[in-house]
Amino acid sequence: MTYTFRVSALAAEFGVHRNTIRNWIRNGSLPARPGPGRQYVMEWEAYRALCERYGRSPRPGTDRVKDPAMLQQMAGKADLPPVFLGRRSPTFTESPAWIESCLACGSCAAACPISGVDGLDPCRIIRMALLDLEEELLATDWPWKCTLCGRCEESCPMAVGIVGFMRHIRSLRDRERVPGPIHSGVTTCLERGNNLGIPEQDFLALLDDLGRELALSCPGFTVPVDRYGARLLVTINSKEPFTEPDSMKWWWRIFHEAGESWTIASSNWEGVNWGFFSGDDEAMRTIVGRMVDNLQRLNCSALLLPE
C-alpha cells in the first residue's frame, strides 16, 4: 500500500516549504521515489510514521486500500466461483437495441435524471447485459423506476436503443411481479374493454348525462356514440369517466365549436395502452387492434388518441 503525492501538496499538508520536502527526499529522511507526472510514491507506513512524528493524522481516505494480509487471504480463496465473461445471452443480444455498440462512455448516465437512485444508471444496465449478468439485472427494479423518458438515448453517440431495451427488460418480468396495478389494468382491459372495468351501460349513461349538461351551454349538443361514417374516432382515458368526467367536455366543446364530425365507440373505447408500460407486446397489439376494428366498423378516417 502506497501514498502518492506531489511536493507542493505534501508541503502544504505539513506546513513546510517545498524545498524542505525536496531536501527530505534527497537526504533519505523521506523514503519516497519519483513517479510519473512529477509525483512521488512512498509506502503508506512511511507516510503514517511521518504524520505521527509531526502530530498529524493521515489524510482521510488514503488508507482505504486493503492491507497486504487481507489481499493475500483473498487470493487464497480459490473456492470462489470463477465468473466467465463473453458468453452473450440471447435474451439480450436478440433485442434490436444494438447494445453491443455501447462504448461505455457514460453520456447516458450523465443525461439520466435519476442516475444514482438505488444504484440505477443506464450505462451500468447496458454493461451488465453485455457482461451476461442477466440474472442480477432482472432481479433489480431499475427498469421500472426508469420513466422511459429517452434523454439517455438522445445523448448516446452510438444510437443504442436504450429505451426499447429497458422496456424489453420489463417484458421479461414475471407478470405477477409487475409493480403496481399496471398488469392488472392490462388484464382488465383485455377482459372488459377498459383499464378500470367500467361497464358499458354505466359509461353510456354517463355520456348521456354529460351531453345533456353541455347542451345547456352548447345548444343542440349530443354525444355521438357509434356514429357510422364520422370523420374522427375519439378514444377516452378511462380515468376521466372514473374520476373527473367533466374533463371530457373540453374536447366536446371544441368539437361543437368546430362543427366536427366525431364519435365515441360504445365498447373498447380505452385510449390508454398499459401494455406499453408493462412490456406486454401481445396485449398492446390486441388493444391497438381493437381501435383499428372500431375505426373500420364505424368507417372513420382519423383517430384521436389524446393520451
Binding site: T147, P179, G180, P181, I182, W274, F277, S278
Partner: peptide
C-alpha cells in the same frame, strides 16, 4: 413509463 401508477 407508468410511474404515476407504480409504487415508487
Amino acid at each position: 413509463g407508468g410511474l404515476w401508477s407504480m409504487p415508487y
